[in-house]
Design a protein around this nucleic acid. Structure first.
Lengths: 221, 221
DNA sequence: GTCTATAATACGATAGAC
DNA sequence: GTCTATCGTATTATAGAC
């Protein structure tokens, strides 16, 4: 299975793209994001993607040589977006503020890019056939780096003792849940499709959960 | 789309099944669980299910009239298992103990039944085409019921003020994450396939997270 | 670059012998 | 109940005109 990473360049022709090329590729990727995120890789058909892009199927395959290439292009574009909020965590900041801001960035990302989140979730659920290498290298490296910062805060008594990596897992899972499981969230809360009002309560819950006792371990001996 | 629930009976013929029928249906469902949970509904093929069940494709279709019926049978069997840990939360217990035990049950369920968890996750990600009604009725009702209990604990000062439903969402997401995103967890931690040793640290993290400050809100004014 | 037509195949499901 | 053979369709991908 072809592996991708943030470093990989998807540009086959060094020649710059024409205006119409850029527009059409963008249109295809937008349509594909919609279809892939709702149905998974195998559930998505070129017919539906072409239809969503308002384009004929052969024309679509003029821009991407096959279905998998469209999928890979989407995932590739996603990885940097996924890493960005984590990258911003600074060792120089106040732990409570840094972690609180990270949670808000992730939750905002979940709210603004639910389709991207579901695309990512589908890929992981399927065993990460395309981004396995990315997870083992770029992501692992960044997590290792940030875990050191968190560990230092713990050693300084600024953060409750815990496994830093699992703290990150908890932040990822709780924030992404509101995008990936939005249907369940809405049904349980009795909200209509498209209603995202639950994000307000979600933000409050996560603040209570993560900033309640974990922070300021010194204050509560 | 055909909807199912815990109340639905999947028995078409009241006549009791023969030994060989039971065995074969069980074999098919086990194989299908493996294939569906790894590839999603559309990614799974009858060929692979039949092969995994060590059975011919027509023979498989002798027991289930089509692919969807196998999928529905799996989901139906899953719903009660999914609800069971939540049902056990008792209003008469000590809040800390009750919630701690619930988290451990959910985490244990994640560890013991990762394929079932992924099957469920795939169904929700796809928009819950089969279990939408279940989510809106049985699950919502049970959540409403348990949320009342949690709210009473909050009112009594035994639990930090928060939205009870979102507390449940946080428990669901963090525990299920270790089954649904196990590939990512392993890759980030640098563990080999099949290694589930991270569940120890996971349990500790969740205890710290959920039982740290949330409980005994009175103790920390 | 875009289209119609179509090739090639994968897949769900059935027919019918045993 | 189980099998081989096969049908029908959906879907990926290409050929070739414009």
């Amino acid at each position: 299975m072809a592996q991708i990473s943030t470093a990989s360049t998807s540009v086959k022709h060094p020649r710059s793209k024409t205006r119409i090329q850029q527009e059409n590729e963008e249109r295809i990727l937008l349509a594909a994001l919609e279809v892939f995120s709702q149905n998974g890789f195998h559930g998505a058909t070129l017919d539906r993607i072409a239809s969503a892009a308002d384009m004929s199927k052969p024309n679509l395959l003029y821009y991407f040589k096959n279905k998998e290439e469209i999928h890979i292009a989407l995932l590739t574009g996603l990885l940097d977006v996924w890493l960005a909020p984590l990258r911003e965590i600074s060792a120089d900041g106040e732990p409570t503020l840094e972690i609180g801001a990270y949670i808000r960035r992730k939750l905002e990302s979940s709210r603004e890019f639910p389709r991207e989140s579901r695309l990512f979730a589908n890929e992981i659920l399927a065993g990460a056939p395309h981004i396995g290498t990315f997870l083992q290298t770029e992501l692992k490296q960044l997590v290792d780096e940030k875990a050191k910062i968190l560990q230092r805060w713990i050693d300084n008594g600024q953060l409750a003792p815990c496994d830093p990596r699992h703290l990150l897992f908890a932040i990822w899972s709780t924030t992404q849940h509101y995008a990936d499981f939005s249907v369940q969230v809405r049904h349980v809360l009795g909200l209509p499709p498209g209603d995202k009002s639950y994000y307000t309560d979600a933000a409050e819950m996560l603040d209570t959960l993560f900033l309640g006792r974990l922070m300021g371990a010194d204050d509560v001996p």
